[in-house]
């Protein structure tokens, strides 16, 4: 029963993670400009990855692979916002003007 509950929780986490990935991708397509799209990818993708990896860690049980998964989670949590910041900074310094909700402003 415990095993079944664990599998169910892991499954839920993995499905939720996929949901966040999907939302991140939809955001990438729907949001109006480069900076707004970064919000979708830097927030939804790491959470999606962390949830999927946590589900995988629960399924793998107390093994060496669990430590690997935890190391990957730490890597994603640290590197994802840094990469997002690097992209935004590059756009900002290249003179990319953020979209604002003003009459006549068309989304990219």
């Amino acid at each position: 029963m415990t095993g079944l509950a664990l599998t169910a929780v892991a499954g839920l986490l993995i499905v939720a993670g996929c949901g966040f990935f999907l939302a991140g991708t939809i955001g990438l397509l729907r949001l109006p400009d480069f900076y707004c799209r970064l919000h979708a990818t830097t927030k939804c993708d790491p959470i999606g990855a962390v949830l999927i990896l946590t589900g995988a860690a629960l399924l793998s049980g107390p093994e060496i692979s669990t430590i690997r998964i935890l190391a990957l989670i730490a890597l994603i949590v640290i590197t994802s916002p840094t990469a997002g910041h690097a992209l935004a900074r590059a756009g900002w310094h290249a003179g990319h003007v953020p979209w604002t909700r003003e009459p006549g402003n068309e989304p990219e």
Binding site: A23, I47, G48
Partner: peptide, 9 residues
Amino acid sequence: AWQVLRLVL
């Protein structure tokens, strides 16, 4: 992440 998810959907 939840807020972005709600917003984009």
